[in-house]
């Protein structure tokens, strides 16, 4: 594992460690050569394996917004929408006029329309910045991303296959390397998922190009280019950092929310006593 450093003396410590590595030659191939090097696999590619999580307000609203009250009065401050800056290149999402109106309608009906409320699969890129960690497993020719949310997961095929045979909630992912960046072409979406809790949406013409680029040993830059000619006037980009979960014993815990939403979805169909 890379050595984690912080504080004013970290530079000195790093220099000392680098010197030690040179002196005794303990640095094996594939290991980071200093505190600033990203881990690499035996074939020299960045090793994206690990547990990652987005921090911030992208899932609340990709665009700049002030705080808003909770739609569930009983939840008070716990359910309130925190303020946030925009994660969208250029600030706002370039909707076609009809789509801008639909977005407003979605936002008004957040509680009844947001697929996240129902524990439906979140789609891409929303899965990345949901408030749950996700884990990447990487081995030669294989990429698996498992999300902490529900049973969401994606196998990223490193041999390009083109469009998928049917539509998917999580799309159909083909990956390749461009230098140190893992580029994932995601196509074959259905039109059921949203980008956030603010009603931002897409059609089944969505094409997402994701780019995972090492920033520091514990940070990735995540970029998603969104193309959907049925909904937007031009392609637009989401950019946010991903943070490594550095707790020594970090692991994904089950969040099988299908079970947690049954009363919401089916409660009105349950037999009531005396009826």
């Amino acid at each position: 594992m890379p050595i984690r450093l912080s504080g004013p003396r970290s530079g000195l410590v790093a220099a000392w460690l680098a010197g030690l590595a040179l002196c005794v030659g303990v640095q094996a191939a594939g290991q980071p050569s200093s505190s600033t090097a990203f881990p690499r696999t035996a074939d020299g590619k960045p090793d994206l394996s690990g547990i990652w999580q987005a921090v911030g307000t992208a899932n609340w609203d990709l665009e700049a917004h002030g705080p808003r009250p909770s739609p569930v009065i009983a939840l008070g401050a716990v359910g309130a929408v925190p303020p946030g800056v925009s994660y969208v290149g250029g600030g706002t999402i370039p909707y076609q006029p009809w789509a801008a109106a639909k977005k407003q309608e979605n936002a008004k009906n957040w509680m009844t329309l947001d697929p996240e409320v129902k524990c439906f699969l979140p789609g891409v890129p929303r899965a990345t910045y949901l408030p749950y960690p996700f884990q990447i497993l990487q081995s030669p020719g294989r990429f698996l991303i498992v999300y902490g949310y529900s049973y969401a997961r994606r196998e990223i095929n490193m041999v390009p296959r083109g469009k998928g045979p049917v539509d998917f909630w999580m799309g159909w992912s083909d990956g390749h390397w461009e230098g140190d960046t893992l580029v994932v072409d995601v196509t074959s979406f259905n039109d059921q998922t949203w980008f956030d809790r603010a009603g931002n949406f897409h059609s089944d013409a969505l094409h997402v190009t994701e780019r995972y680029t090492p920033m520091t040993p514990h940070h990735l830059t995540y970029e998603a280019v969104i193309e959907d000619p049925k909904v937007f006037t031009r392609p637009w980009t989401i950019t946010l950092p991903l943070y490594r979960r550095i707790e020594k014993e970090a692991e994904l815990l089950e969040f099988k929310c299908a079970e947690l939403t049954e009363e919401l979805l089916y409660g009105h169909l349950v037999k009531k006593p005396g009826r």
Partner: peptide, 21 residues
């Protein structure tokens, strides 16, 4: 069932519902 390994981990991806890492 898909098995994927990475250093220190093994994942079992069952087609139906469950993934174990």
């Amino acid at each position: 069932t898909l098995i994927v390994q990475s250093p220190g981990w093994v994942a079992f991806l069952y087609e139906q519902l469950d993934t174990r890492i």
